[in-house]
Design a protein around this nucleic acid. Structure first.
Lengths: 350, 350
DNA sequence: CTGAAAGCGCTTACAG
DNA sequence: CTGAAAGCGCTTACAG
């Protein structure tokens, strides 16, 4: 069934020229003159025979495989990994690169597994992306320096590798700014205690925003598990602990969308309407929650697609030896997390 | 920085043998005798130099790249694509294959884009997987027959290519069976009208189950959009349209988990408790909904990981020329959709 | 038991 | 303006 592949020699024979000429014409090799007549004969023959250069052979010869490797940490458990892959893949296509993927199992130590990097190097990838979401700082294995590398979601402990992270802190602060401008003053934060970059950044951003507005950054902060159940408990504690209505927070800003789901339920049980009685804000813009709640959840989006695309674009620049600004640092580059306004925010009742 | 790679010649020189011998030893070539002493000298030299064979060069020589290509339709919008990729990748690792990924844009016509297949063929992939979720039948481009190919989530119109799909129909029927055994009789189905394989299969399964139990398969079926809002409306219509409690369905089985989310809200607004007053069942086991609702949603899981793994395993068998049962057909192979029981089902109140 | 040599399908100095 | 030839790093008949 795999009928013999047509090679450059077949094209050369059909066009009555040498393989050298075919290569020059098809690749538009610079500093090479070929008569227009020969060129069109070659192109016509290539098209007629359905010739497609063997990228393996070309890669061996040029020492550039045209492949980049994406190592994702626990792709299965990170709901947004798909968008990182999508961004990386589409950017790769634009650079005529192919994306290879290896899933790395989640580890407690932040070190990248050398054997997984080696699998890519055996394939002669032109560059490697390591994408993590659970560590803020990782140690890269020696081999990773053999080719251009970039990091998504973490910082290289040795500071040598370009990296990019969402600016969770600024994203959280911008939420407070928006709420304050709407007239809110008693803005609660349902935090969580797991020690990952996201928890620290979002809490800091909340505090930044509160302080900038001259509000007490710790009056309305509670901690709970980062799931719907935790959001429920936190919201119950925040809204129901015998407070008079005029002391009650007018907004519950949740560490993530799952907690916001629990906040909705708590509000409903307390007979409070979202957003008329209490506004709710999430973080992650996690499908399908954000759009499936009623009212639809206002939240902060993570730039997953953009990080994937940035990683490949940066790699491409490094591979081509271009000195793009993103290659220069300082690292990590921080990407904005835009607020996605839906129906769960209103001006405070009083 | 990319210090010169060590090649097979370096190993040969270090071990004092020919490259032929190095190749034989490292690959355990059959029908080849090499003295144990030479073998260990070669292995030691390879280890000491950190030699890793160039897979590009080997692929060119053996005409087998060791890569399989996964073409996914609109990975970004299918929440479970990640698990297909994970299953495919882990199975690929087991076969010493590398997974390359290209995202295909969603089209209305069910034809695969030839240029995307060609991108893989240019890379000399040993096999191609096309994964779709929106079409039940696709037309494969001519080129796809150049290498072993398999289909996920759709059937090849020409019936030549092995394919696999979730058995949505049997999954839905098994839910009815479970509910009937618990004592339910008035089992409603919140259907949807979009014409994709999943909608038809699930509705058919519901009917199969109802008929098998001697129940009326159309008394409690309503249609709505396949989102939370549709589930809310459907459930409202089902539970509230002036029915007496003894006519009211005791279960709302929803086309998908998003609709089930809306069903919970409707029940809450009607003052009905899940599952004491009404049981709710979803379909998809879509993270993070199923586990974030309270009570946690009983639903039907889609075997995404398994389909990804099956695809690569089948491809590997075809590539190696083995006649595994899965290569024989008939197609499509149907994979079971297991029920995931959580807290949203109870025995009916009366 | 071991090795010299051809060749996979390209690109690229280099020569004419 | 065009082509002969070397070589990328391997594997594999084939010979000894």
């Amino acid at each position: 069934m795999p009928r013999k592949q047509v090679g450059i020699r077949d094209v050369a024979a059909a066009a009555g020229v040498s393989v050298t000429t075919v290569s020059h014409v098809l690749n538009d090799t610079p500093h090479t003159r070929t008569s227009d007549e020969t060129k069109s004969r070659v192109r016509e023959a290539a098209a007629r025979l359905g010739y497609h250069p063997n990228r393996l052979a070309r890669g061996l010869r040029t020492q550039a495989s045209g492949m980049v490797g994406l190592l994702t940490e626990e792709i299965a458990t990170t709901p947004h990994a798909g968008r990182i892959i999508l961004g990386a893949q589409e950017e790769a296509s634009r650079h005529n690169l192919t994306l290879a993927i290896i899933n790395s199992t989640l580890r407690h130590d932040p070190d990248v597994e050398p054997s997984e990097v080696q699998a890519f190097l055996d394939r002669q990838v032109d560059g490697i992306i390591y994408a993590t979401v659970y560590h803020d700082e990782v140690v890269l294995p020696e081999q990773m320096h053999a080719v251009p590398s970039v990091l998504i979601g973490a910082r290289d402990r040795d500071g040598e590798v370009p990296s990019i992270m969402p600016d969770e802190r600024a994203g959280a602060a911008s939420v407070i700014d928006l709420l304050v401008r709407l007239g809110h003053r008693r803005i609660a934060f349902a935090a969580t205690s797991v020690d990952v970059p996201a928890t620290r950044g979002r809490l800091r951003g909340y505090r930044d925003g509160m302080i900038a507005a001259g509000l007490d950054p710790s009056a309305h902060v509670v901690e709970a598990v980062s799931e719907a159940a935790g959001g429920y408990e936190a919201t119950m504690a925040l809204l129901d602990e015998g407070r008079r209505a005029e002391d009650r927070p007018t907004v519950v800003f949740c560490y993530n969308d799952r907690m916001a789901m629990g906040a909705y339920r708590a509000a409903a049980e307390l007979g409070l309407s979202v957003p008329a009685d209490v506004s709710v804000v999430g973080f992650d813009d996690q499908a399908p929650i954000a759009g499936s709640l009623f009212p639809a959840l206002s939240t902060v989006a993570l730039p997953h697609y953009e990080m994937g695309a940035w990683a490949v674009a940066t790699l491409a620049a490094m591979i081509e030896g271009r000195d793009e600004p993103e290659v220069a640092g300082p690292f990590p580059t921080l990407l904005p997390c835009p607020i996605v306004e839906r129906g769960s925010i209103a001006v405070p009742a009083r």
